[in-house]
Design a protein around this nucleic acid. Sequence first.
DNA 1: AACCTGACTTCGG
DNA 2: TCCGAAGCCAGGT
Length: 103
Amino acid sequence: MKNEFTEKIKELINSVPEGKVATYGQIAALAGNPRAARQVAWVLNSSSRKDKLPWFRIINSRGTISLPRGAGFEEQKSHLESENIAVDEKGRINLKQFGWLHI
DNA sequence: AACCTGACTTCGG
DNA sequence: TCCGAAGCCAGGT
């Protein structure tokens, strides 16, 4: 198929186990394009609604929530905490402990 | 086909 | 460790 890259991104996101988080860069790299992290975010934004992907398990390389306050930050934080993942006030997460794949 | 946009990443200060 | 600028990718208009 033509956009197997996008399809693979969805598969990878669905592969993230509960209680773990992955970064855009990791997903992009596993999908075959380490540079297409932005595309991962785009796919999430467009597919999370219809495909119900665990978008809340995807964070940026700094190990923090990328969403701004009032635009999903609170929501994502709640989802993560529901899976026993520690998130501080600034949205920071300990990747050493909760990271799906170790960088 | 060209330009714009985005839940990013990396580098330098 | 935090902030700003530049670079990259694919989809949308």
